[in-house]
Write a protein that binds this DNA or RNA. Structure first.
Lengths: 166, 166
DNA sequence: ATGCCGAGGTTGACGTGTCAACCATGACCT
DNA sequence: AGGTCATGGTTGACACGTCAACCTCGGCAT
């Protein structure tokens, strides 16, 4: 708990290094996806839907998993619907609730983009880290995430193991 | 160098953890800045200009330091100019070149926002990491950045020390 | 039944970023 | 001089995300 108003040398290195890395990573991966015709947000939605039971999710749940505002979810789903990547259906029980369903076209787009995206994640990132560094990163995320909001830890990071090698 | 098409358990944990953390961090810090009347991009430009000799920078150099496209730089500087945060001057030598100069209003905005932003960086991030984890992060950034583009490492990360404690 | 409130979503306006096309100037060659 | 090319920047159209205002319906108290 440093008390200065500015970052000292070590903190500064850590912070600027992290920022430079994360901005570049996002830029590269976003580029690749865009070339495949999808935005990062599109990709996220497609993945979440494809992992959901019946490939369908209420807009609320979608927003909760992605940590998005309801407005963002609404716009995103509308745009994807206009492109035929998802469909919308009402909920039988509660007419207020809306749900998004993965379409064939959406599933296809995901199948096409996923291997490229995964390759990018490796090529730009994971391939350059040792297993130990990957474990350190998990610990870092676990340390930081609880202080970033009401969101529960993503399933991958929940409880159990500390940081150990493969 | 794994050869599968998908991420295995450890890789997946590392990647999803990292993504969750970086998205939340950006969201929180962006929120705070926006409440102070600045976007993250505004803040970046103000910092770069304030650190530059004579508080002035050619648009090209600005773009190089921030790793932005020239189009992005152009739009960004125009908008900041319209709000009085920067001014533009031509270059005496080469009429093609344009330069941005920090205005009084810009310097003021930065003075007002910086402590809040720094506090956020600590509160959301650095305070929850040990010095050792900060050092690990620096090493990770140094491992990854060279593979993300033509950009030279930011000055903070250049050569010399490995990862050691404070 | 009436009235209020909260949950779930939508909408419109606006700021930001990307891409592609474009313009102007300097440098170099012949 | 004239042509070609690279450099540095601008512009317009469009996709994305935020905010604030709004709408609709269900639940509940009185």
């Amino acid at each position: 708990m440093s008390d200065t108003e500015w970052l000292d040398g070590d903190e500064r290195r850590a912070w600027r290094g992290y920022v430079a890395m994360s901005e570049m990573l996002e830029a590269r991966l976003g580029q690749d996806l865009r070339r495949a015709g999808l935005s990062s947000a599109d990709y996220t939605v497609l993945v979440l839907l494809s992992e959901a039971p019946e490939r369908r999710l209420g807009l609320g749940e979608l927003g909760a998993e992605a940590q998005w505002s309801k407005s963002r979810v609404s716009h995103q789903v509308r745009r994807m619907q206009e492109r035929g990547l998802v469909e919308r259906t009402g909920d039988a029980d509660d007419p207020r609730r809306a749900r998004a369903v993965l379409t064939g076209r959406g599933a296809e787009a995901l199948r096409a983009a996923a291997p490229l995206h995964v390759a990018g994640v490796r090529r730009y990132f994971l391939d350059h880290l040792t297993r130990e560094q990957q474990a350190q990163l998990v610990e870092i995320a676990r340390s930081v995430l609880p202080h970033l909001g009401p969101a529960p830890l993503p399933p991958e990071l929940r409880e159990g193991r500390g940081g150990e090698e493969a």
